[in-house]
Simulated scan of single mutants.
Amino acid sequence: MMQVLSSKSGANTKECPSPGKLIVLTGPSGVGKGTLLRSLLQRHPELYYSVSATTRSPRPGEVDGKDYYFISRSKFEQLVAAGKFLEWAEFAGNYYGTPSEPVIDQICSGKLVVLEIELEGARQIRRSFPSALSIFILPPSFNELEKRIRSRGQDSQEAIARRLQRAQEEINAANEFDIQIVNDDFETALNSIEAVLFG
C-alpha cells in the first residue's frame, strides 16, 4: 500500500510503498531512557536511532553526530524557520529537535525509527505523526527518580529542583501515551520494550 509521509511543515513529503514505523520513547529526566535505548540498539542493530540536534554543550564522552548534533542557537533557529524539524522544544535553557529528513527517509525505506525525546517534543510528534507508537518510561517511584537525578552529581540544587518539578509534570502526562513501562528492573523494562516492538 502506497502511503504519503510528510512532516507537519510539509517540508519533506514522500510516497512510501511499504513504510516502517516511528517509535517515540519519552519519560522524565533520570528515568533511564538513554540507557534502555543504548541496550535496545545493541541488541537490534536493524533499528534506526534518530540523532537529535541540540544547542547544549557536549557532556564528557559525547560524540557529535552520534549522541547529538551539537549546533549553535542561531543555526538551530534558522533550521526551525526553514521547517527542518519534526519537533523541537526548549528544555533547561537549551533547544532540542529532531531533523525531519533522515527520519522520513528511514521510515520510507521500511525501518523502525526510534526517537528519544522530551515530553513537549513527543506531544508535537503525536500531532504531526499520529501513526507513531509512543512509549512512556516511568520511574518505580518519585523518590527513586529523585535519587537517580541527585546521584548524577552534575546539577546545582536549583537545577535539580527544576528537573524534579518538571519530572512531576511529565509523569502526570504518562497516560497520554500508547504504552507505559516502569523502569524498576532494567532487564524487565528492556524486555517489555522489545515485546512491544517485536511482539
Rank of each mutant, 00 (worst) to 15 (best):
S134M: 02
Q78M: 10
K8Q: 14
G30I: 01
N172M: 12
E116P: 04
Q165E: 15
C108G: 08
Q78K: 11
G32N: 03
A167R: 00
V51I: 15
S18W: 10
Y96E: 09
I179N: 05
S50R: 05
D64C: 06
Q157H: 03
A167K: 00
Q124T: 13
K14R: 13
Q157K: 00
E194C: 00
E169G: 05
Q165V: 04
T26D: 06
L145Q: 02
E176H: 06
L36Y: 09
P19I: 07
G110C: 09
D64A: 11
L22V: 13
L138I: 07
T26M: 07
I125A: 05
S151M: 07
L25C: 03
S39W: 07
L79W: 15
E170I: 15
F198A: 02
A189N: 08
E46Y: 11
L138M: 14
H44L: 06
S52Y: 04
I125G: 01
N172C: 14
R38W: 12
R162W: 00
E118S: 05
P130V: 10
K147F: 12
E116C: 07
L5H: 08
E15F: 07
P130G: 08
L40T: 12
P140R: 02
P17H: 02
L133W: 09
E144I: 13
S29P: 02
E62P: 02
F76W: 11
H44F: 14
N183Q: 05
F91E: 07
E46M: 08
Q168C: 06
M1E: 08
A122R: 01
Q42R: 13
A132K: 03
D184R: 03
T13L: 12
Y95T: 02
Y48A: 08
G93S: 06
A167H: 00
R148G: 02
L197Q: 04
Y96R: 00
G27A: 01
S6T: 15
K84A: 13
A11G: 10
S100R: 08
K21W: 09
K84N: 11
E194I: 06
L86C: 09
G65H: 13
S18T: 11
P19G: 02
R43S: 13
I171R: 03
A122V: 09
R123P: 08
G34W: 05
T26H: 01
R148A: 03
S72F: 12
P102G: 08
E116R: 01
T54I: 05
G97E: 12
P130R: 01
Y96Q: 02
A53R: 04
Q154N: 08
S72N: 09
W88N: 11
N94A: 10
